[in-house]
């Protein structure tokens, strides 16, 4: 009987630990990017028209060719060939590219901070 109870007890303990740790607030820096939503990001991409220049996985129309295709971004080394590929950097870049890379052709886009993080989340998700 004791043998049968042991695994069940372990699972219960594990569940309790998981649940309680999920309730603990994550550090501030993580919150911003962790709360970003790829789904909202896709909506923002469609609203401002990123795909006018970029062919983006999951966006069926348009499939712009003026800028590079945006797939596999998660495994890419650098953003725009010079910035470290981190979510907050990507978010800042999609919002105001010339501020980070002055000689890029990409203009600042009408995205809020929140939307920019969401867009970054989407671009990473499609690369998986």
């Amino acid at each position: 009987m004791g043998d049968g109870l042991q695994p069940a007890l372990c699972i219960l303990l594990l569940a309790v630990v998981t649940l309680t740790s999920a309730c603990a607030p994550p550090p501030e820096a993580v919150t911003e990017t962790a709360l970003a939503s790829a789904e909202r990001g896709k909506a923002a991409i469609e609203r401002v028209g990123c795909a006018s220049c970029h062919t983006i996985t999951g966006i069926s129309w348009p499939q712009g060719k003026t800028g590079p295709a945006l797939d596999g971004l998660e495994r890419r080394g650098l953003i725009a060939g010079e910035l470290p590929n981190r979510p907050e950097v990507l978010a800042a870049f999609v919002q105001d590219a010339p501020a980070l890379v002055p000689d890029t052709a990409m203009p600042a886009m009408p995205l809020t901070d929140r939307e920019a993080l969401d867009v970054a989340a989407y671009l990473y998700e499609i690369g998986r």
Binding site: R47, V48, G49, C53, P62, T66, M106, P107, M109, P110
Partner: peptide
Amino acid sequence: LPNNTGTLMG
């Protein structure tokens, strides 16, 4: 498409 610098350029 919405008219912004990006879409116009594209």
